[in-house]
Every structure is written in structure tokens, then in C-alpha cells.
């Protein structure tokens, strides 16, 4: 049984300029793996992530032939049922911890709250679990950090707190939306290592949304490449260098490289057909 199965997901937004079709016929299944959704801004990658948890604005129209989490039909869930899934079974890590953490609550309390919302446990137990979790995300002095506010910690530490919050209820799936793009490269690596260790230890499946092909090539098992709301290529991460779709190839080639410096970078010419042609594996 797949952890998550999506067939022909379509998402449309109503805007002042009319209807915008942001996601078109996206299908994939997620097993116990690290799945990347890659694309440039506006490709619809975050919208897919949010559609799974019904986090898009209320005016959004989400349709699909199937949107199943295990045996649960997510499309048939009412608000209450979806709320029971969010956090406890499927949770989401956002790009910038500065905007995702509550600024007037200590980070430790926020981690403890993430647990106590879903379990009937005492305050003391929640606190102890949160301290344990802080240790798991490699925070040297959990007792001290527990009492700190978000503005007192660095970006890398903030993202580790976010990971702690999302992992502590032991969900089945974590959707991470550009979790490291706001971080320095050296910190990025630490955060990814911690995330990998925890999801492997706790058997969590990961959907990793990113614009960074080099990063997902190293970090993920499988990659979906999105363009104009469609999946244009679905490929194993280690095969990315041999990608067949011209868009994927164009993305790979347009990156400046230290090893192979070129005087002029190749610039992509976009084909209208990419927007309409169905992807054939």
C-alpha cells in the first residue's frame, strides 16, 4: 500500500484576473522514500504540497481522481478530519523559520505543544519529550534553548526547531517546502543531515519541495520536475544527469559550475509544447 497516492490532481485559483490553473493533472505515489518536487517559481510545486494538507486559501478549487493517504480519502475528509491528519500524520516544514514560529512563545513550549495537541499527556511529560527532541536535532544545551524565543536563535537553529516540532508527533509523511533555502550552505548540510537521520529512524516518508536541482540530486531518491503546473519528468535522483526532458536538462546546464566554467552560460529556450504535452515516462 502506498503511503500517499495522487491521481490527476488539479488546482485552480480564483484571482482578480480570472481563473488561474496552477496545477494540472499531477499524479504520483509516495512510499517510504524521499521524493523531491523541483521547479522554478510559479511551477506549482508548493501548491501541490499545500493541496495535500488543504492549506491553500479557501477560494482554491482542488480536484483529483484520487488523493489518498493510506486508506483515507483526503478529498472526502471534512475540516475536523483534516485537522486530525495535519501534524499528527502529515506535517509540513516551511521555508523560513522566522515566519513559521510563534514570536511570543518560547521554542521549547512550541515543540511541547506540537506533541500535547495530539496526545493526552501531562505538561511535564510534554516538556521532557521536547527536551529529548531538542537533543535529537543536535542542540547542545536543550534546557537553555527550551526557554529561548525565536528572535534569539539563528536561522539554522530555527529550522532545527521546526524539524523538532514536525517530527515529535511522529507523522507518517513530512512535506518540507524549501526547508534550507534561507540558510547558509554550511548550515544547510547540518540541517539536511539531521532531517535524514530522524526520518530514517522514525520511518517517515518525505516530500521535499525545492528549486535546487543539485541539492535534490544528492539528497533525494526520486525527483518530479514541474513546469507550468505539470510534471514534465519523473526520474530517479541518481539519473538526473541523464535527464531526457529539455527543461530538466536546461535547468541542470544553466547552473554556473566551479569545475567546468563556461564564458557564456546556456540560456533556455522554452517550448510552448511543454505546457500541453503529456509526460511519457
Amino acid at each position: 500500500m502506498d503511503v500517499l497516492a495522487i491521481e490527476n490532481l488539479n488546482v485552480t485559483f480564483r484571482t482578480d484576473e480570472g481563473i488561474k490553473h496552477a496545477v494540472r493533472d499531477v499524479s504520483f505515489t509516495l512510499n517510504n522514500e524521499k521524493l523531491a518536487i523541483v521547479g522554478e517559481s510559479g511551477s506549482g510545486k508548493s501548491t501541490v504540497g499545500k493541496a495535500i494538507l488543504r492549506l491553500n486559501p479557501p477560494s482554491t478549487l482542488v480536484t483529483a481522481d484520487a488523493l489518498r493517504f493510506g486508506e483515507t480519502d483526503l478529498l472526502a475528509c471534512n475540516e475536523k478530519a483534516i485537522r486530525a491528519i495535519r501534524g499528527q500524520h502529515i506535517s509540513m516544514i516551511m521555508q523560513d523559520p522566522k515566519f513559521s514560529l510563534n514570536p511570543v512563545m518560547t521554542v521549547g513550549e512550541q515543540i511541547a505543544e506540537a506533541l500535547s495537541v495530539h496526545r493526552r499527556i501531562s505538561k511535564r511529560e510534554a516538556r521532557l519529550a521536547a527536551l529529548e527532541m531538542l537533543k535529537e536535532v543536535s542542540i547542545a544545551d536543550p534546557e537553555h534553548v527550551y526557554g529561548q524565543y525565536p528572535h534569539e536563535i539563528s536561522g539554522g537553529m530555527g529550522q532545527r526547531i521546526m524539524i523538532a516540532m514536525m517530527v515529535i508527533p511522529e507523522p507518517d509523511i513530512i512535506i518540507a517546502d524549501e526547508p534550507t533555502s534561507a540558510l547558509d550552505v554550511s548550515v544547510q548540510q547540518d540541517v539536511l543531515n539531521i532531517l535524514t537521520r530522524l526520518i530514517e529512524k522514525k520511518n517517515i516518508s518525505l516530500i521535499f519541495i525545492s528549486h535546487d536541482l543539485n541539492l535534490v540530486k544528492k539528497f533525494c531518491d526520486h525527483v518530479l520536475v514541474m513546469y507550468g503546473g505539470r510534471v514534465v519528468e519523473s526520474i530517479r535522483a541518481d539519473a538526473l544527469s541523464n535527464a531526457s526532458h529539455p527543461y530538466t536538462r536546461g535547468l541542470m546546464e544553466s547552473l554556473p559550475s566551479l569545475r567546468h566554467r563556461r564564458d557564456v552560460l546556456p540560456v533556455m529556450t522554452r517550448d510552448q509544447n511543454w505546457l500541453t504535452q503529456d509526460y511519457t515516462p
Binding site: E40, S41, V185, G250, L251, S254, P256, V264, M268
Partner: peptide, 28 residues
């Protein structure tokens, strides 16, 4: 985005050359 980054880097390189500019560039 990376594809746009490539266009802008190419533009900066060609302006540098054509107009004999001096650049002081910050990047991570």
C-alpha cells in the same frame, strides 16, 4: 530562478566587456 540567473549573469558579463565597467560583486 536558475534559468533567469544564467541570463542575468550573461548580461552582466557582456556589459562588463562592452562598457569596460569595474564590478564589485557580493554573493554567497
Amino acid at each position: 530562478d536558475v534559468s533567469v540567473q544564467a541570463e542575468i549573469l550573461n548580461l552582466l558579463a557582456s556589459l562588463h566587456h562592452r562598457r569596460q565597467l569595474t564590478y564589485l560583486m557580493v554573493s554567497h
